[in-house]
Every structure is written in structure tokens, then in C-alpha cells.
């Protein structure tokens, strides 16, 4: 049995201006320890898919119109509130895009990580020691001195490490990283990606990396799903998709990656009208 299997998932948003079809029947399979990248532009439905895995989308306006999300064969969409809360953080944990706003500004790092531990690992007696272990794991120096810091006392890269430590504290089977490096500068981006790579092999967890950046997935993800307008337009092993993209949108996306030393005066952009006509 796969760790995660999404079958024909459809999500609509009911807004005042009508119904928005955000996700239109996508199917994904993920094994234990595997890494999947979901790539696409803003509004393609990739983040919505990520949040849907534990039903984090506010309902309403969101509505799950079709399909199922099977985690170890059990449908998340049929779960009730209590079951869902046991899932969140414990089996599937999240790292979000903007660490400076994703951490609660008025609580210390310790209390924010401790909250997750108390919920999912009540057997942990020495909270401080466990939290220090987590912070150490994600490469925070002097973690013991950082415990009582507030988020605003840390740099962006440090804040994202705290987010990762918080996600890992309960040893999840699946980590959903939703644009984890978009808000960080390029050198920190590389450090954080290295950190993910390192932790993934240490903790044997599956990772779903949601990104609009083809550049960071090539030597990170086993599989890639390219999303466009709520549909998966291309799905396969990363190396294959990168080498031999089939869909026009994937080709366009790959062409958009600026290449070092390439003679080019203008960056390539995506012609949406042409893609629309083609699909």
C-alpha cells in the first residue's frame, strides 16, 4: 500500500463572484520515503492540493467535490475533526512559505514547538531536551540559548529552520514543504534545501515539495508533477521530465530557467494564450 494516494481529487471555491475550480481531478501516488515535487505557477492549484492533504482549507469557501485522499488506505476526506487533528502535525507536517508570518509573533520558539509535542507526543517528559534536539537537528547553533527567543529575534533563515524543527518534532511520515525557500535569499535557499535533503535521509520521511522553481528540484525530487490550471499536465520521474518534457507548458517552464553563460538578451516568458489554445 502506498503511503499517500490521491485519486481524482477535485476542489472548488465558492466565492461571491462564482465558483472557482481550483483543482480539477488530480491523481498522485507517493511511497514511503519518496520525494515528490509539485511544480506550477501561482494559482495552478499546487498549494491548495498541499493544504487539502489534511483538510486545512477553510470550508466554506472550499469544497471537496470529488475523489479521495488515501493515507495508508484511509480516506482523509471522510475523517472527522478529532481524527484530522491527530493527523495534522503527527503524520503529515507542514513548512510554509513565509516564516516571519507563519510563526506566532507573541509566543517563544519553545512554546510553539512544545505545543506540537504536547499534542502528539505526550510521552515526552523532558520537553526542553527534546526541543533542543529538534533545533540542533535543523542546524541551529546554541539551541539551548534560543529556546526563549521570540520569532522576531531570529533571521529569516533561522525562522524557517524553526518552522522545520517544529514540523519534524513529531516525526511525521510526510512533510509538505510549501514554497519553503521562496521568501529567503539564494544562499539561505541552498542551505535550507541541503537541510531538507539531509533530514529526509536521516528520518526516512516522504516529502512533497511545492514550488514554482524548476531550478531547485532537479537533484532533490524523485518524481515531479507539473500543475497547470488545476490539472496535472505532466507527471513522472524528475530526470525524465526535465530531459524530455512532453507537455507544452512543461517545456515553456523549463525554458524559463535562466542558464549561466547562455547568450540571451531577454528572459523567456510563458505565452498563456497559446497554451490555452493548445490545451
Amino acid at each position: 500500500m502506498s503511503l499517500l494516494e490521491i485519486r481524482n481529487l477535485g476542489i472548488h471555491f465558492h466565492t461571491e463572484n462564482g465558483v472557482v475550480e481550483a483543482v480539477k481531478g488530480i491523481s498522485i501516488k507517493l511511497e514511503k520515503g519518496e520525494t515528490l515535487a509539485i511544480v506550477g505557477e501561482s494559482g495552478s492549484g499546487k498549494s491548495v492540493t498541499g493544504l487539502a492533504l489534511t483538510r486545512l482549507l477553510p470550508e466554506p469557501p472550499a469544497r471537496y467535490v470529488s475523489g479521495e485522499i488515501l493515507l495508508d488506505g484511509r480516506d482523509v476526506l471522510k475523517m472527522k475533526g478529532d481524527e484530522l487533528r491527530k493527523l495534522r502535525g503527527k503524520r503529515i507536517a507542514y513548512v510554509f512559505q513565509e516564516p516571519s508570518t507563519s510563526l506566532n509573533p507573541v509566543f517563544t520558539i519553545r512554546s510553539q514547538i512544545a505545543e506540537a509535542l504536547k499534542l502528539h507526543r505526550p510521552e515526552v517528559k523532558d520537553l526542553d531536551a527534546e526541543i533542543i534536539k529538534c533545533l540542533d537537528l535543523v542546524g541551529i547553533t546554541n539551541p539551548a540559548q534560543r529556546l526563549h527567543d521570540y520569532p522576531h529575534q531570529l533571521s529569516g533563515g533561522m525562522q524557517q529552520r524553526v518552522m522545520i524543527a517544529m514540523a519534524l518534532a513529531c516525526q511525521p511520515d510526510l512533510l509538505v514543504a510549501d514554497e519553503p525557500t521562496t521568501a529567503l535569499d539564494v544562499t539561505i535557499q541552498a542551505q535550507i534545501m541541503d537541510q531538507f535533503r539531509d533530514l529526509r535521509s536521516k528520518l526516512h520521511m516522504a516529502v512533497i515539495l511545492i514550488t514554482h522553481n524548476f531550478g531547485i528540484i532537479s537533484n532533490f525530487a524523485d518524481k515531479v508533477a507539473v500543475m497547470f490550471r488545476g490539472k496535472i499536465v505532466e507527471y513522472g520521474p524528475t530526470a525524465e521530465v526535465l530531459r524530455n518534457p512532453q507537455h507544452a507548458y512543461t517545456k515553456a517552464l523549463i525554458q524559463c530557467i535562466p542558464r549561466l553563460g547562455a547568450r540571451q538578451h531577454r528572459l523567456v516568458t510563458i505565452d498563456h494564450a497559446a497554451l490555452e489554445a493548445a490545451s
Binding site: 493544504l51 489534511t54 495534522r88 510554509f96 513565509e98 507563519s102 506566532n104 509573533p105 499534542l119 502528539h120
Partner: peptide, 11 residues
């Protein structure tokens, strides 16, 4: 955003 983070933790 921090509310979503808390929900994602299972609060």
C-alpha cells in the same frame, strides 16, 4: 499565517 501553522500542528 500563524493561525494556519497552528492548525497544521493539530491545534
Amino acid at each position: 499565517d500563524y493561525v494556519r501553522t497552528a492548525q497544521a500542528k493539530g491545534v
